[in-house]
């Protein structure tokens, strides 16, 4: 099956808090790392979520090999590398890569400028983080011996912050009007605005996250940034048929028939059990109706969408591969 995003080198994954964007970013990295491809998974929010998901030691500011990609059609899998980007290290690396500051470089640190620039000077922090991501996608000759990745997946800040985060040159405008940082930001924007970048949204089928996704897509369009797909995460099991759902919602399921079915299945039937099953059916049917309404909204957004199941046992490394396979089967990777 071919991918919906063949020309994309940088996959940015965003989403509202609690929707599972880090999980989806990790699964996407595994799915992309099929057929010998090298993929880099980056995080920028200092949470060490990648280390926890892949059950490895906290990541340093260096590219580490963390997992083998999804095996696809018997072809040898590629490798997923991970990188934890923090603004201080990115700034120091940037300075040493582009400037021979020598004594001034050390003075910057001594005078608290690095801390100042990375925590308070707004926009600069984002430029440093996205700058490193840019460098990973667009390797240059200054970074000797670095791996040329086939794809980079960024576990990005949440939906509400994604447009200012990527729209670095606008954020810097007014602060740094000229100079190398400004030029650097402009070069980065060329990549972020190009078809080699796709910004994917993760949502669950609830009102607020879907609304935020729609708003986020609109903001990206306004900023001229490329919208990718929508990944609908934590989709409930769909074990009931449509007509049964309608009946369940109205409390119209045939209690006697269910009771005798349970007896056929060898279950010790109590009134409590039947009540419980009917209650669950009603709750489930109400939720499903809400989900369907939200799904319609997602479909109406005009971008490809993908669905991942809610895993009742929680997320572990094995389930990341399951989700990766689901993304690949649906054409996201």
């Amino acid at each position: 099956m071919s991918s919906d995003w063949p020309g994309v080198r940088l996959h940015v994954v965003t989403g509202k808090g609690g929707t599972g964007k880090s999980t989806v970013a990790a699964a996407l990295a595994l799915a992309l790392a099929a057929q010998g491809k090298d993929v880099l998974l980056c995080e920028v929010e200092g949470r060490q979520g990648i280390a926890r998901m892949f059950d490895v030691d906290p990541l340093p500011y260096a590219e580490r090999r963390i997992a083998t990609g999804l095996v696809s059609n018997g072809a040898p899998a590629g490798v997923v590398h991970a990188l934890h980007i923090d603004a201080e290290s990115a700034l120091m690396e940037y300075l040493s890569m582009y400037y021979r500051l020598g004594r001034a470089g050390r003075a910057l640190d001594r005078f608290g400028v690095i801390e100042f620039a990375t925590t308070i000077a707004p926009g600069v922090r984002d430029v440093l983080l996205t700058g490193k991501v840019y460098e990973a996608v667009q390797r240059n000759s200054r970074n000797k011996g670095a791996i040329d990745y086939d794809a980079v997946v960024l576990d990005a800040p949440p939906t509400g912050r994604i447009t200012p985060f990527l729209n670095v040159s606008d954020e810097l405008a007014g602060l740094a009007k000229v100079g190398p940082i400004k030029n650097q930001a402009d070069t980065m924007m060329t990549l972020f605005r190009s078809p080699r970048t796709a910004v994917h949204f993760v949502t669950v089928l609830e009102e607020m996250p879907v609304q935020e996704t729609a708003d986020g897509i609109a903001h990206l369009h306004e900023a001229g940034l490329p919208v990718g797909g929508v990944v609908v995460n934590q989709v409930r099991p769909r074990d009931l048929r449509v007509k049964d759902l309608a009946a369940a919602r109205k409390g119209g399921l045939d209690r006697g028939a269910i009771r005798s079915d349970l007896e056929v299945a060898g279950v010790e039937v109590t009134d409590g059990l039947v009540d419980g099953l009917l209650d669950q059916a009603r709750d489930h049917a109400i939720r499903r109706a809400l989900e369907d309404a939200q799904r319609t909204l997602v479909k109406g957004m005009g971008v490809p969408s993908y669905e991942l199941p809610r895993l009742s046992a929680g997320i572990d490394l094995g389930s990341l591969y399951e989700l990766a396979a689901a993304l690949r089967d649906q054409g996201m990777a």
Partner: peptide, 22 residues
């Protein structure tokens, strides 16, 4: 699983679904 295999009634798929939800 037993119900899917042995259940002959019209509501068997429904009841099996309810059990999986449970």
């Amino acid at each position: 699983t037993r119900l899917r295999r042995d259940g002959a009634s019209a509501t068997a798929p429904l009841t099996a679904g309810l059990l999986r939800l449970h």
